[in-house]
Design a protein around this nucleic acid. Structure first.
Lengths: 136, 136
DNA sequence: TAGTGCTGGTCTCTTTTTGAGACCGACACT
DNA sequence: AGTGTCGGTCTCAAAAAGAGACCAGCACTA
């Protein structure tokens, strides 16, 4: 926290990064951030970063996710290339999900934010409490 | 990318982090991730990390945001303690938004992910293209 | 003195995303 | 035949996001 962490690019570069020329797919940041956004994606990435999991295991690990969202989120993560899905032809066929190299790479960067979150969660909660109190 | 970037905690710790005891506010990661999730939060953070901006400036900088979402997103960021809102009693009153210390701190961690996004965006897009092709 | 434009919003309505939960086929065990 | 586990899909309701009309206050202008 040295007071000027940020020396980003020029206004025009920011604009380009932000607007993506009107097309979200042209904006790297938005495109990738969408990849960790959503209520469940970060949690599943954290779980899979630890070790591969099967569908049912994930469902039990994250008890408050609906099956639909678990399916959907895993599908999206797979589509983005972060997660590998492998079906094993066992008696009841089992499906294992694991991080790809790209997924591990992304998680490495994402991990910084996770650490920050754990360290500063109290500060955020305090800020919210103060804000809500001031509004009242 | 050394193959094992991640040596996170035990399963139970993950579970606790994930489930938050059924209450999202008890889960630091989810709580903070929500703070950069959403279509606009990361973009506004990036913009404000560069320098303070006024409402109208942000609206012009991010042309495809609706006024409603700009208001709302800035409000949320302010509530989380990342953004400071100051009203100047000029002729038409102007409102300036800037990052707080907490916001700058969070952005420092978040910045890692931004850098990753810029470096690896092509890989993500390629993965998606491959996936979509395989589905067809 | 009525129009026009700028400021920073709010309000309403529509579309998209998320969520809860029922349902499904295959196979194993009892 | 009945029950359980596996990994899902389907339907429908609720929540969030988005588009865009509208608004008050003030300055300048005609």
């Amino acid at each position: 926290m040295d007071g000027k962490i940020i020396n980003l690019k020029s206004k025009m570069e920011i604009y380009k990064a932000i607007s993506g020329g009107g097309n979200i797919a042209n904006c790297p940041v938005r495109d990738v951030i969408q990849g960790v956004s959503g209520k469940w994606r970060s949690l599943l990435m954290m779980a899979l970063a630890e070790k591969p999991y099967r569908f049912g295991e994930l469902r039990r690990l994250v008890p408050d996710i609906s099956q639909r969202m678990l399916t959907q989120t895993l599908y999206d993560l797979q589509r983005d290339g972060y997660v590998h899905r492998e079906v094993f032809p066992t008696k009841p066929p089992s499906v294992e999900y694991s991080l790809t190299d790209l997924g591990r790479s992304m998680f490495g960067a994402f991990h910084q934010l996770i650490l920050w979150a754990e360290l500063n969660h109290d500060a955020v909660r305090a800020a919210r409490a103060d804000f809500d109190a001031a509004q009242a």
